[in-house]
Simulated scan of single mutants.
Amino acid sequence: MSSVRQHLGNNETVKAKEELIFHCGFRHFRASPLYSQHSSADKHKLERLLQPDAALVVTVYAPITFTPASVLLFKQRSNGMHDLIATGFLLSVDPDRIIIKRLVLSGHPFKIFSKTAVVRYMFFNREDVLWFKPVELSTEWGRRGHITEPLATHGHMKRHFDGQLKSQDTVLLNLYKRIFPKWTYDLHVPKPEVEME
């Protein structure tokens, strides 16, 4: 893991899992990193892009390098030249860092009563409804609620909300999934082409 900040001379968008060339201390390798927020919490939110205005943590599986070590990230152009993308320093070697990605499941009201509603298209079997029964639900229009019971076997369920639901509202369930970096470590780094003037 290393803490990096996008280089000021580069305004190109760099997506997560895009192959980059790392110069980490005396090691040179290629890998596809994950970006996550640099915070003091024990769980860190996944970032889809390298942010130009914030320091992010880059996570890859690679041989151990000890701190302090500087980190340079390069991207190879189609013509073989290397562009400097980000600079930073080695943060730590921590295989237990938890990177989470936010997922949102949505469903639609099928029948609406005073404060309860039958919702469909969020789950498609009874076991999933029972598994997520303790989780709080929300709607796009600000209502909060929970699952009271599953109906039949096709994923329909009764839900109780804190107010009347509208027919055009959407019921949402926020979930968080742990993400691991892929093993894309490659020791072979092509030499950069020199631009002749």
Rank of each mutant, 00 (worst) to 15 (best):
I21K: 02
G88R: 01
E136Q: 12
T139Q: 05
A55E: 08
Q164L: 13
L49Q: 12
R178E: 09
S92N: 15
Q164G: 09
F22V: 04
H146C: 12
Q37T: 12
V58L: 13
M1F: 09
R30D: 00
L72S: 14
T139E: 04
R126Y: 00
V189N: 03
E18F: 04
G155C: 11
E127C: 03
F66W: 09
R159S: 14
E193C: 00
P109K: 10
K115M: 12
Y35H: 08
I85R: 02
A16V: 13
D83I: 08
E127K: 08
C24R: 03
G25K: 03
Q37H: 07
I98F: 02
L20E: 01
Y121A: 08
F29M: 09
L56S: 05
W141V: 08
V57M: 09
V93E: 07
Q51R: 09
L187E: 08
E127W: 05
L91N: 04
T148Q: 11
H154M: 03
T116Y: 05
Q51H: 09
I100S: 05
L49S: 11
E195A: 02
G9A: 02
R178L: 00
R102E: 13
K17Y: 07
F132Q: 03
S39V: 12
A31T: 05
T65M: 11
R30N: 00
G80C: 06
R5K: 14
V57H: 01
P68L: 06
M1K: 07
